[in-house]
């Protein structure tokens, strides 16, 4: 074989190998086939340098919190048929940029801007809870809200990623479905975390105003309704309904306080069962039960803005049910991961 031909074959082989590594793991990163991969560039650990100085300190906090590592670890129980990437960056779109999943490169991007937004929102909620406890009657700590909000949004984007990579059939609006899976997963974490996540979700959406009317002043339809996401109240009611449907004893206080209207609440057990069934049939088969139990046992709040806890805190020996169970008991009466360990 001539040298030229050998080089050509090597070139082809190298090209094929490169193709094999295409996707979110293509850049410098720790290769974890079929798992969640931190997409690094230039040894940035997945945390892209910022363009504006104002987000440099945010980046430092995100790195200190090991946010990408946490997200990767949180999703580790999913036996992904294709890898998913995660990275953090100062996103295009200015100060309103939110985390997103891009199916083209199968990557979840955490925007530094969103962390700033979450911190600002946390200050606002904490002030409101302190100032008007009658209107905001559900005690919540700063860490619970902040991490509940950040975690909820990342779970939402992870939901989009799972729908894509696992080929989950979504007949309803995908944005609603992503909210559903984020709440469902959160409900099956440690009881304290589950409740905190739902409270954070509720406080956030309670503070987002709805459009006043279906019609705009110019006689056209109100384009606020053109958004593929639900309105603040719709997302509030949808999320609380799932929580209440799963654990009425825990989340009945939202009904009592009027945050979840009675006429919606009466159908929430059915809504939860429908959702749990969809999860059991389309996502659960991809879940490693042992790893899931480990993740469910981690206190993800314990090390806010500090090193993440190792993901080996609790190992449950009980096999998961085929469907995430509905709980009528208070979280405190449950085991470390609640009754529904099916995720």
């Amino acid at each position: 074989m001539s040298t030229r031909r050998t080089l050509a074959l090597l070139w082809i082989a190298a090209g094929l190998l490169a193709l094999g590594g295409d996707g979110p793991a293509a850049a410098q990163s720790t290769q974890q086939p079929d798992r969640v991969v931190i997409v690094a560039e230039d040894n940035d650990g997945g945390y892209r340098a910022t363009r504006s100085k104002s987000y440099a300190t945010v980046r430092d906090r995100v790195i200190k919190a090991r946010m990408l590592e946490r997200l990767r670890d949180f999703l580790s129980p999913v036996r992904l048929p294709r890898s998913i990437g995660v990275r953090a960056e100062e996103c295009a779109g200015g100060g309103d940029a939110s985390p997103f999943y891009n199916s083209a490169d199968r990557t979840i991007t955490i925007c530094y801007q969103f962390i700033t937004l979450a911190e600002t929102m946390t200050d606002k909620v904490m002030a409101a809870v302190t100032k008007d406890p009658k209107r905001y009657p559900f005690p919540i700590t700063r860490d619970e809200f902040l991490w509940g909000l950040i975690g909820g949004v990342l779970l939402h984007e992870s939901g989009h990623a799972l729908f894509d990579v696992l080929d989950v059939p979504v007949f309803g609006r995908e944005e609603d479905a992503a909210d559903q899976i984020s709440i469902l997963v959160a409900l099956h974490l440690r009881p304290q975390l589950a409740e905190a996540a739902v409270k954070a979700y509720a406080y956030f959406w309670r503070m987002v105003p709805d459009p006043d009317s279906g019609m705009a002043k110019d006689g056209k339809l109100n384009e606020d309704f053109a958004d593929e996401h639900g309105t603040g109240s719709q997302r509030l009611f949808n999320g609380l309904c799932i929580g209440y449907g799963h654990a009425p004893a825990v989340f009945g206080k939202f009904v009592a306080a009027g945050w979840l209207p009675e006429n919606r609440a009466k159908g929430c057990a059915r809504e939860y069962e429908r959702l749990a069934s969809a999860f059991a049939r389309t996502v659960l088969p991809f879940i490693d039960a042992k790893k899931m139990a480990e993740v469910q046992g981690v206190d993800w709040l314990a090390a806010s803005y500090g090193p993440a806890q190792p993901v080996t805190a609790v190992v449950r020996n009980t096999p998961p049910p085929t469907t995430p169970a509905r709980s009528d008991a208070a979280p405190g009466a449950q085991g470390p991961a609640g009754r529904g360990t099916g995720q």
Partner: peptide
């Protein structure tokens, strides 16, 4: 859906059914 939006007036956010304005765009 558009005419229904105009006719309904107040938007029902509690229902499991989307308001007609959302249904229009969907």
């Amino acid at each position: 859906f558009g005419y229904a939006t105009s006719a309904v007036g107040k938007v029902d956010y509690v229902s499991e059914v989307s308001p007609p304005a959302q249904r229009f765009y969907n």
